[in-house]
C-alpha cells in the first residue's frame, strides 16, 4: 500500500503513533503477536479493525490470523469499552456465594448486560472466569486507566453503592 490515507482523510501512520515503538521492538521477534495485541489494547482500550490491519502490515502476519488469535483469548476486545471496566468474577467460590445475584444487581442498576457498555460510556460489564480472591467472594475488579481496584464480599446493596461512588467521580 503506497497511499497511507484513511477513508476519513486522516493519516493512518499518525493514527497509530503510540503503537509504532511497540512494533519496532516486537515485529521481528517470532511469537510476539499476543504481546503486540496486549500492548495495542493497553494503548487504545480495544483492538479496532484498523489497528489489526496496521499490525498486519508491520508484522507480515495476515489479518485473518490476527483476528483468529484476538477472538480466541477472552482478554481481547474488538469493541471500545467504557471508562470503567467492571470485571465481575464468576469463579466457583463466587458462584457459590451468589455472583449471579450481584450480576443481576449491576445489570439492573446500570441497564447493561455482560459485554455491554452504558450509554454514557462510563461502565462496561465483563464476566470473568476467576480473579483468585476466592475467600472474599463474591468479588469484582474495576479497571480504569489509572488503577485497578478490587471489591470483595459484595452484596446487592454494596455493589450499587460502589457503582454510585465511581459514577460520582465521573
Amino acid at each position: 500500500m503506497s497511499e497511507k490515507v484513511c477513508c476519513c482523510g486522516c493519516n493512518k501512520d499518525q493514527q497509530f503513533t503510540e503503537l509504532a515503538p511497540v512494533l519496532d521492538k516486537y515485529a521481528a521477534v517470532p511469537g510476539s503477536l499476543i504481546t503486540i495485541l496486549q500492548k495495542a489494547q493497553d494503548i487504545y482500550g480495544y483492538l479496532s479493525i484498523d489497528a489489526i490491519n496496521y499490525i498486519s502490515e508491520a508484522t507480515g502476519i495476515k489479518p485473518a490470523k490476527i483476528y483468529g488469535v484476538a477472538t480466541f483469548y477472552s482478554q481481547f476486545r474488538l469493541k471500545p469499552v467504557g471508562k470503567y471496566l467492571i470485571m465481575l468474577c464468576k469463579g466457583t467460590a463466587c458462584h457459590v456465594n451468589g455472583a449471579d445475584i450481584i450480576e443481576e444487581a449491576i445489570s439492573e442498576h446500570l441497564g447493561i448486560k455482560d459485554g455491554e457498555t452504558t450509554k454514557d460510556g462510563l461502565f462496561t460489564l465483563n464476566n470473568v472466569a476467576c480473579l483468585g480472591c476466592c475467600s472474599l467472594a463474591p468479588v469484582m475488579m474495576v479497571k480504569s486507566a489509572d488503577d485497578d481496584e478490587t471489591y470483595g464480599n459484595l452484596t446487592k446493596d454494596s455493589v450499587v453503592q460502589v457503582l454510585d461512588e465511581i459514577r460520582a467521580r465521573g
Partner: peptide, 11 residues
C-alpha cells in the same frame, strides 16, 4: 496460568 476457578495458591 492458574486458570482453575477457585484456586489461588500460585497467585
Amino acid at each position: 496460568d492458574e486458570g482453575d476457578p477457585g484456586a489461588f495458591m500460585d497467585r
